[in-house]
């Protein structure tokens, strides 16, 4: 555990808490892509199966359980409790266009052809593109609430901080996982346009609106 990973994990945690708080306080999930949230639930459910096969640390198990459970709660809130506020008309990204190619790639390019490893690889690849339905939705509506922007900034920062963690681990521990690094870089690149808008608009007190 190094400082980049710890701050990255805390940023990830903060993102999820921000999203749940936004939905709970406003009793609404307007502006949030349910499809991205379904993908995140799928990401956690397929990645953390090693909860049942190995124990790494109390921190590790607690975080995994937190991510799995909160992602399921988020999907439940969007599709059941606050369904009336869900903006389905703008959430039109086709999930099969992500899940099918990512599943195929996980079968072809992995570290080890075993069920657990393939599911982990699928999860890593899927996470890198899981935000696309949310970004697609924002490009359709042309704007995002400020709290949603904070959520996305925390969520994007987490993987960017993991990249610093991987640089650190490569130099000081000799640890290098090509699949995680490439997918993590792809994931971070997808956020760059949003990061730019967040820094130039939201941090200056303006609402995030996209150029037409």
């Amino acid at each position: 555990m190094n400082i980049f990973r710890l701050i990255g994990d805390m940023s990830h945690l903060l993102a999820i808490v921000l999203l749940l708080l936004k939905m709970w306080k406003t009793r609404s999930c307007a502006g949030i892509s349910g499809k991205s949230q379904i993908l995140f639930a799928l990401v956690f459910a397929t990645r953390y199966l090693d909860l049942f096969t190995a124990f790494i640390s109390a921190y590790n198990s607690t975080m995994k359980l937190f991510f799995i459970s909160t992602s399921l709660v988020t999907v439940y809130l969007m599709y059941f409790k606050f369904r009336a506020t869900y903006d389905a008309n703008h959430d039109t990204f086709r999930l099969e266009f992500l899940v099918v190619p990512v599943g195929g790639l996980a079968f072809l390019v992995n570290h080890n052809f075993s069920p657990l490893e393939i599911l982990w690889t699928f999860s890593i690849y899927l996470e890198s593109v899981a935000i696309l339905p949310q970004l697609f939705m924002m490009s359709k509506t042309g704007e995002a609430e400020t709290i949603t922007s904070h959520y996305l900034f925390a969520l994007g920062s987490y993987r960017a901080l993991y990249i610093l963690n991987w640089v650190f681990r490569y130099y000081f521990e000799g640890f290098f996982d090509l699949i995680a690094v490439v997918a993590g870089c792809v994931q971070t690149i997808l956020y760059c346009d949003f990061f730019y808008l967040y820094i130039t608009k939201v941090l200056k007190g303006k609402k995030l609106s996209l150029p037409a």
């Binding site: 090693d50 640390s57 993991y162």
Partner: peptide, 10 residues
């Protein structure tokens, strides 16, 4: 590559 399970990262 350190590739085997279990994974210590989240």
């Amino acid at each position: 590559c350190n590739s085997s399970h279990p994974k210590d990262e989240l």
